[in-house]
Design a protein around this nucleic acid. Sequence first.
DNA 1: GGCAATTTTTACCATTTGGTAAAGACACGA
DNA 2: TCGTGTCTTTACCAAATGGTAAAAATTGCC
Lengths: 205, 205
Amino acid sequence: MPDGADKKPSRIQQRNRGLILDAALDVFSKHGYRGATLDQIAEAAGLSKPNILYYFDGKEEIHVTLLNQLMETWLDPLVTLDPDGDPLQEILGYVQRKLDMARDLPRESRLFAGEILQGAPRMAPHLVTGLQPLFDEKCAVIRVWMEKGALATVDPRHLIFSIWATTQHYADFDAQVQVLLRDDPDRHGGAAEYLATMFTKLLSP
Amino acid sequence: MPDGADKKPSRIQQRNRGLILDAALDVFSKHGYRGATLDQIAEAAGLSKPNILYYFDGKEEIHVTLLNQLMETWLDPLVTLDPDGDPLQEILGYVQRKLDMARDLPRESRLFAGEILQGAPRMAPHLVTGLQPLFDEKCAVIRVWMEKGALATVDPRHLIFSIWATTQHYADFDAQVQVLLRDDPDRHGGAAEYLATMFTKLLSP
DNA sequence: GGCAATTTTTACCATTTGGTAAAGACACGA
DNA sequence: TCGTGTCTTTACCAAATGGTAAAAATTGCC
């Protein structure tokens, strides 16, 4: 039984847990937590439902596992914001990385968005212990940059919110963006250029 | 039977349909379409489940009714964007109105966000017939303003996206914002000031 | 007050869904 | 090859859920 924090997982265990998590990411991000069913996940993973419950204790554990895994990837671009780099370039680089993530990992973006949208019922602790300290730290970094005169002064907290909002929008509201930008062959490039302009004008001292 | 487009609705009908829709907005916005149950809606409305199904054909009809109703309210600030007004003031006013809506109508914002997040399964037609023409029209207005030199030139489509994203973020990601801004007594004011600064710097010619 | 139409309740039902028990298939080291 | 532990399937189940039928209550008009 591959339950708690037992010994090292077998090759089959690793493969199947991977299959399940990938399938679950698909299904959860498409239908939300309640909208997703174990049967859908099972079919997407190519396994039987009881077999899935052999690897995970239940639907909720799959979801939480996914969320925990995601947090790392998700915060990584913010982690790499370098206090010793060129302030404006650091911010613009961060915007770019977040925008790339919205394009390359839309399922992850939507999974996260869905969880927050419903009040973060399965993630509130993680927000406080994982996100909050990092957020405060990077706000302080940005504040220092502004005090040095390397960036125009704005509230760093709302600055970060606006970066998150504008980049993730392209993943989370894709259904809408697709309707309104129907035949634009270079949506990503257009967004990248627009956001670079916006944050450059905002932050140039 | 208060079914199709019959005669004028009775007073009871008007009241109860109102109760149901308000309760449903609560429940749907909190748990999403699949996560919401008729029992929850019934309890929130103070009516029995079969009684609810006396006024609406089913869960889906309630949801769709809500979405359709919402569209009007939702697009209103964009409708009132006046081609003959002062360009920058018009945009800033639009931002402000959207931000106020995020504060005053968070349930509506989250209902909408949840629907789009899942691919707009019950709203795609409305996006094409209602939103798209308005979006194109207002993009054209903004483009004219830019060509006249009244605004700095940026892609109007991404400009509008960034307004939507940054304002709705405060409603849709409230669970996150609340954690990160825990003891800020003036979140709304701070956001308003930040966004005014951002869009002013972006658009000032 | 009487009566038809409207509204509400009671008692159900079929399906879906998360989950379990236990038997069976399989892998792999001795 | 044999046996032990790992993995998978089959056959279920109880609860939740969207929905219905029809009786009972209520409303509103004459």
